[in-house]
Design a protein around this nucleic acid. Structure first.
Length: 129
DNA sequence: CGTCTGACGCACG
DNA sequence: GCGTGCGCCAGAC
């Protein structure tokens, strides 16, 4: 009985963490924001870092996304590019050109590993959430 | 423990 | 429009 109440406490704490976005690890914050990027839209590592509250930790965002494939939930990591719209993370996908193909599948044009109309497709969590 | 390494982004010259 | 230096912080050694 004691064990059960302890487990319930932990479950509730997790729920609160998810709702309030408090006490979550850096990686989990990255994952939950990335999952909110709409279909056909893209954002940057820096924008996510800024939204999390660590504006200079954009490199960590990439680090987190490289491990996103191990997550239970689907993380649309292909929708995150660098500030210029370049597909800097393409080599971390199972196949080369997979990132490009995933983006093109969402009607996003990619030329020379760069999103052509990046500005208009840019989704900034700070202004959109 | 310390040190290095990044899917980055900024400031500066 | 370059190139360089540094902050960031989790994980591998």
């Amino acid at each position: 009985m004691v064990i059960k109440t302890e487990i319930l406490k932990m479950v509730n704490a997790q729920k609160v963490d998810n709702l309030m976005n408090i006490n979550e690890s850096f990686y989990n914050k990255v994952f939950s924001i990335t999952r909110l990027i709409p279909y056909g839209r893209v954002t940057s590592y820096g924008a996510i870092a800024k939204y999390i509250g660590s504006p200079k930790a954009s490199q960590m965002v990439g680090m987190a996304l490289s491990k996103s494939k191990n997550q239970l939930l689907f993380i649309p990591a292909h929708r995150v590019v660098n500030r210029n719209g370049c597909l800097t993370g393409k080599n971390h996908f199972p196949h080369h050109n997979m990132m490009k193909e995933l983006l093109e599948n969402e009607n996003i044009e990619v030329i020379d590993d760069k999103i052509t109309n990046f500005k208009s497709l840019f989704w900034d969590p700070i202004t959109e959430l």
